[in-house]
Write a protein that binds this DNA or RNA. Structure first.
Lengths: 238, 238
DNA sequence: TGTGCATTTTTGTCATACCAAATTGAAATG
DNA sequence: CATTTCAATTTGGTATGACAAAAATGCACA
């Protein structure tokens, strides 16, 4: 047949397949949304066993390049920033278990959102302001309902990630809430705390309205430091 | 025990194994640095075929939880923020190929570093300042050597990521340079541009010395916007 | 005690088989 | 002609067995 001598004895055959598919996915030979060829077909065209094919597909799936539901043909996934986030999921979960892990991630979040509120204070347009106002109203209306308050809380913060109009940011917000929510939800939640948090949101919003980035950053740090203290107490993190 | 009837027919057996191993790795049953049991041992203790075991191990490897060099026993990996970054590598590479991908990532970087220089202006201690000064000197000395200038450029920025003393940040810097370097390196590099960039670094450093976060942010944005224009021209990105 | 080699494990790969679920296409139905 | 039904076929998930090559092991030897 054609030449297929690529067994380096140092590299796995499956890894070769993976890089080939990665290339084909990027250059469009394998179109987005279309399924991969059947495993038996792949093994023939590459001259490898099905074992190898399956391992390759498995890797592609874990990397987030294809969507491989059990029993269905793997489908080439739409390139999206959420897929990237998803790919780190398990590693991050492990990081959260190491000492200081939650703290480190939370601090990163504070730093990001501080930058975001500054940006919002400078660049938020009428549309964004309106959405923040709405989110804030929903937040206030939910003070007595801790579950709904939690959701509207997240929604308020999400608007901040939408202001810069960078599609990378919303998935990052999603990731933060996913990763930290299990800790977040354990902190004491009652109308009193909710009220404090609503007031904080309110101050952030006002500072943005006044186009005052310093005040906005200050208000946000105050807000998230308060939240962090709650989380810390719940976990007795140092 | 011997009974393991958990085949939902909706879930892959390998996925079950993966979650089991994930748990065992997190709770320490599988110690960091130690190899996983031999495949044949695993298949016996879980009552699955070797096919399944191999797929599970493959997934763990892709997820970055174990280090699986070919022909060697997979070793449980030290939890590290670099492993997380590594896990997103292939997805990010794909993102860089979509329209505006480089731009979005670069903007995220600008936002991050803007926050970092503000933080440095407020919180950098003598140690950090000394290292920045050293990095700046190295940078100046390399103006005539574009290759070395590139390296010292990166080193200067890296110090910014070290100031907040958050172990998440340096790997992020590493990731940025890895992902964007292929684009970065294609932009025109000559002593003249190097000089401009050195001057920019210098201004950033001075602003940090003066404890002036606004000036620092301004200098950094000017610097990175300049850099972005170079990259953009090289690629004709919109 | 340290070292080199033969033996045993163990991984990487292949081939084959079987079941159950998904897909397909034809037949039946409205 | 469009739609539904259902049986035949395809395909993915898993199991088993086999074999070469590389790694781990242990033993004899210096």
């Amino acid at each position: 047949m054609t030449e297929e001598r690529n067994q380096d004895a140092r590299t796995r055959a499956a890894d070769n397949l993976v890089s080939i598919f990665e290339r084909q996915i990027i250059d469009g030979t394998l179109a987005v949304g279309k399924p991969l060829p059947p495993e038996r077909e792949i093994m023939q065209s590459f001259g490898v066993s099905r074992t190898v094919v399956r391992e390759a597909v498995q890797t592609l799936s874990t990397k987030g390049l294809v969507d491989a539901r059990p029993r269905f043909r793997p489908v080439v996934r739409t390139p999206g920033y959420d897929a990237a986030i998803e790919a780190v999921g398990s590693v991050v979960n492990r990081l959260l278990t190491v000492p200081g892990g939650v703290r480190n991630l939370f601090e990163l979040r504070i730093m990001m959102e501080a930058a975001l509120v500054r940006d919002a204070a400078l660049n938020a347009d009428k549309n964004h302001v309106a959405r923040m106002k709405q989110a804030l109203a929903d937040n206030e209306a939910a003070i007595s309902d801790s579950q709904r308050f939690f959701e509207t809380d997240i929604a308020f913060h999400r608007v901040l990630y939408e202001v810069p109009d960078n599609p990378v940011l919303p998935p990052i917000h999603q990731a933060y809430t996913d990763w930290l929510s299990s800790h977040w939800t354990r902190m004491p939640r009652d109308p009193e705390h909710n009220h404090v948090n609503y007031r904080a949101h309110s101050r952030i919003f006002e500072s943005i309205l006044f186009r005052d980035p310093d005040a906005a950053e200050l208000a946000l740090r105050y807000h998230l430091d308060y939240a962090w203290n709650q989380v810390r107490q719940t976990f007795a993190e140092p």
